[in-house]
Each structure stands twice: as structure tokens, then as C-alpha cells.
Design a protein around this nucleic acid. Sequence first.
DNA 1: AAGTGGTCTAGACCACTAA
DNA 2: TAGTGGTCTAGACCACTTA
Lengths: 251, 251
Amino acid sequence: MTRLPDRFAHSLRPTAPDGGARRLNTWQSVRAEVLRRIRSGEWAPGALIPTEHELAAELGCARATVNRALRELAENGVVERRRKVGTRVTTSPAQRTTLEMPSLRSEIEASGAEYGYKLTGFALSVPTDTAMRALQVGPRDEMILVKAQHLANGRAHCWETIWLNPRNLPAVSREVFEEQPAHEWLARALPLTRSRLAIMAEAASGDCALYLGIPDGTPVLAIERVIWHEAMPVSFARQLYPPRHRLISED
Amino acid sequence: MTRLPDRFAHSLRPTAPDGGARRLNTWQSVRAEVLRRIRSGEWAPGALIPTEHELAAELGCARATVNRALRELAENGVVERRRKVGTRVTTSPAQRTTLEMPSLRSEIEASGAEYGYKLTGFALSVPTDTAMRALQVGPRDEMILVKAQHLANGRAHCWETIWLNPRNLPAVSREVFEEQPAHEWLARALPLTRSRLAIMAEAASGDCALYLGIPDGTPVLAIERVIWHEAMPVSFARQLYPPRHRLISED
DNA sequence: AAGTGGTCTAGACCACTAA
DNA sequence: TAGTGGTCTAGACCACTTA
């Protein structure tokens, strides 16, 4: 939440041109007032709230200001809006949440730890079934397979496997990934179009257990990400985190 | 993406009042054009793009329209904006993603399966350490502990443990939760203020393994959620999903 | 001091949809 | 057909930041 402009201070004192109506001139204050009425139960779940025109008149601001406030609330799933019908308080709350997925480097540095990176594998390889489907390639199309550790203060924080489709990417050699994580190279190499994320739990095994320093079979959090350039998938990454890792989201 | 208004059809033909400038009258079309220039590499990561005034003049629309388009792109993390400095293409892309977290009932019904619910436990109990911290209560404060299965076509889909703080909630009996999931009751019982989510991997054990029908030690995806009413946390839920479950997010 | 984005306003037209 | 939200416009003032 940003600080409100000084002008808002005046809005806090009720001015009563038509009998007690507050002036709520900024869209944040309108949003706050609407939220207050919903949370106080004054506007119950499922109920219609006043129209933009009515609210603008009551609160002493332009309709565009009310519209901005209600639009934000609709984007957050607090209300639902339909033309000709009106604006309704959502019945089932909090079904949409924004997940921050910082790069591993900034995530680790933000926690005050020193970021470390170590390449543990680089090869040309035919894709696994999962990689084949994710990258939309054939079983004999050779992909670049990069494996790496991300470290926080020298301790394993994440182990990552990335498949890259060399047909859709600039030429690249092992040396490049000894210096920098594949995602940082990718972001500089190409403008990226679209990405898809999947989060799941699985059991650590083989290299994963080895490089995370945990016993085989330990549950790990897996994040899969496919990134497109134009209409082509160019990378398929699997990041594996030890059990202490948590994805946090706050509304 | 919603269908564009018919008016937009006209914007597609370049009108050249001042030498080739397109008219892009809707904020979606301005956003699309800016995105195109970023993805084509015309505006590289880290580069400053033209000011709102310049873009409005070039594209033949009001500055407010350009502002709306750039604001949306900033919210999605595509550009970064600072007063007096200007608008920059973000260096590290795609670090923010929206996760849809539908209620279990609607998620299961949307997949075409029949939703089922079964209460497997109801008790007054002192909180575990985790629940104590989440609900901000003392070690001897008795909480309501509800355990339940959510089923898809009769098959275990999720096993859930919910701690409720009776001091901050209307009175409730076991019978209530035999009929409906705690979250559905909660949403009707109180206007909810705020929630916090954590996602992690852990090993199934005891009741969890039993009710999900999987061996002890199987990795499960855990979603913890704390919900507030006013300034008080009222519920702490832990949902556990078998390994086949995936959280999906698309941009 | 000056230039950028952030927002408000008043009015207008349009799109969608229930009645 | 009428009422609701969705958006655009042109102008204005302001907040924040660099110089």
C-alpha cells in the first residue's frame, strides 16, 4: 500500500453538502470504503451493491473513480460485475492469489544469504517423455540438458534440470552455463512470450537426493516451468526444493 | 482475453494523419502493441520506452489510455515505472504469477467428476505447535479440530485438517460439518478479511496416508491456509494432496 | 526546476443483457 | 428497450525524483 496523497487528508473529514455524504476522492479510499462495508457485513455475500452512479453521487467523486475501485476489487475476486445486472459481493472468497516467483538469485540474496551457483551437468540428450511433451518435440530430437545447483551460503537450496531446444535458441556452449544459470542466459538471449507453471510433490531420487544432500525418497517440492518464445516452447525446467522450502502467498 | 469491441476493427487499418501513425484507441490494443515491440526485441530488456505523452501522440489516443495499458503491464511485471525517470522493460521476466485456488467442490465438479465429502473427525483439542503459532493462541486454549476427506467420484482427492478458534467464531456443532466442508460454513458464517497461504512438500503419515489411500512416507503436496476475520486469525487449514495432484498457473 | 508518471473530472458513447 | 458496466477523451493538478 502506497502512502495516500496529502489531498486525501481532507477527504477524511466528512463534508456534508447533502447530509453527511463523505467525499472519497481517490480510488483507494473508495475501494477501502467498499471493502469495509463488505467486511462489516453491511453488504453480504451474494448481495447486489449500489451502481457506480449511485456510489459516485454518495461518495462525491466521479464515476470513473468508483469504476477504478470496483474494477480492482473484481480483479481480486472480491466482487463480480455484470453489465445490466450490477455488482455483486462474491460468494466464495479468496480463490485467486498472486504468487511471487523471484529468480533464485534474488530470492536467496533477499534472505540475506550469499548466492552460489554450480553447474553439475551439460549434455546433448534425447528428451524424456515429460520433456518431449512439454517441448513438443519428437523422441529422437536432441535437446540440451543442463543440470545445476543453486546454493544459499554454500548450502544446497535448489537442484535444477533444464531442457533447452537448440532449434529455437541461439548457439550456446557448456562454458556459458558454468558462469550463469540457464534462466539468466535465456532472459538475455530472447524476448520470452509466455510461461506455464506446475507445482507438485515428489520423492527425491538419484542425483536430486545427492545434490540436495537428503536421503532417497525424501519428499521434495517440484516446480516445472515451460517458457515460450513466439509460438514455440524453448525451455522446460524442473526445480526441486528440499522439504524445508515453502512457497508463500499473502492477500 | 475478451473479444475486442467492433470499434477496434477500425483501429487495425492504419490511418495516417501525421505520416503513418496507427490509431490504437483501446487500451488492449495499446498494450498489445507495446508487448509486440518488447517481444520483437525492438525494446530490449532494461531499455527506457517512450513517455506516455509520446506514445499517446504516436498511437493517436489519449494519455489516459496509454496509462491504462502501461499500468497493466507494470502489474504483470513486464515493465517497471518510476516518476521522472520513465518506463523500463523489466530485466528479469515472469516473476509474478496468479494462482487459481478454486474451492475443492468447484475444482472437482469442473473436472467432470462428482464431488463427495466425508467428515472423519471432530473434536475439541489443544493446538499443535504449528496451529498455536498460526492462530496466535496459547498452548492450553482449546480449539475445534475438524478432519475431512474430499472425494472425486468416490476416490480420495484431498485430506484436510482445520483448526477453528471458537472464541472468534459463532457456536458450531459436529452436525454442521457432517453436512458441509468447514470452509463453506466459514464463508457463510463470517465476512473474511485476509488469508495467507504456504505450499510445501511433506511425507504422508498416519491418518493422512490412511485416508488418501497411499503408503506411509509417500510425498504429498501440502497447502496451509490461515484466514483472518478483522484482526484475528480464525482458522488454520492444512490440505494434503496425493502425488498426482498439480497446481497449475499459466501466463 | 523540470519532467515523468499517478490520478481525478465531467461528459460521452458503446457493449452487453435482462425484461 | 432500458439499465448497467466498460471505456475513451481532453484537460487538469499533483507527487515523486533527478538534476
